[in-house]
Amino acid sequence: MIEVNNLVKTFDGFRALDGVTLKVENGSVYGLMGPNGAGKSTLIRHLLGVYRQDEGDVVYDGEKVWENVAVKSRIASIPDDWFYFGQATVKDMCDIYKGMYKTFSIERFKALKDAFNIEENKTIKYLSKGMQKQVAFWLALSTMSDYLILDEPVDGLDPVMRRRVWSLIMDDVSSRGTTVLVSSHNLRELEDVCDHVGIMNHGKVVLERSLSELQDNMVKLQVVFKEGEEEPTMDGIEVLHDSLTGRVHTMIVRMCPESAVKAVKKYDPMLVEAIPLTLEEIFVYEMGGLENEIKNILV
């Protein structure tokens, strides 16, 4: 289990992390999302024990990560700026990883060769950006580590390779119970692979939920009330957002889909229909008023 407690990090007086608290259960896939500059990568560097926090803790199964080799050797990562030695070939980096990770499996490394289809004796520097990313995945997945920390991992990978990489990770999650934390802006993709999501903004985690909770607790409704009648006040229904196009209300309601429909039907509308929300829509509504901001820019 990864636990982050009230983490604070200040750069030149700017609080990049302003009391981050989050929890990732073992065997779960945690998706970290948030607008640019929210502090995702800074948080990830603390999770990897690269940055030293000003306040708070980063704890793996009860042990602090900072300067702790035993904990760090259980974590494989793909940071946004993956490091390799200047002239190193894939094989050289494999040897370095083998030295760092006791659990490194050379059998797995050989087996994954087919999946990635890159020559072992190629110098990494001369590979394309996407292929370098593939090498990073190849090595990270060969470590057989308990934790996998990924910062925007599939950026630069082609669609076929994305799917292949996610398949490999999902196989690890279901067979070995690997714990994964992944940051991404591709919410469509996060929705497939995550079971928990956290939204960061201004150096804080503003929302942390399981995906099923999110799907069961918020719904979009299209409602049309009868003509000529006064619009009901919708007492007891928590409406987060309501927009009117013609006579059709589009409402975002914090309720499970069935009870929301039932609750609105009491007002005898002409039409009521529940539409599930995508993660992207949830993100937008939770960030609040994005529509208004866009409007202001357009005006």
Binding site: V29, R163, M170, D192, V193, L211
Partner: peptide, 18 residues
């Protein structure tokens, strides 16, 4: 199996379990 389907569809095994 959950594992097979998770790998094939590349989605979270908990989703399939659900």
């Amino acid at each position: 199996s959950v594992r097979l389907l998770a790998t094939k569809l590349s989605i979270n095994p908990n989703t399939i379990q659900r």
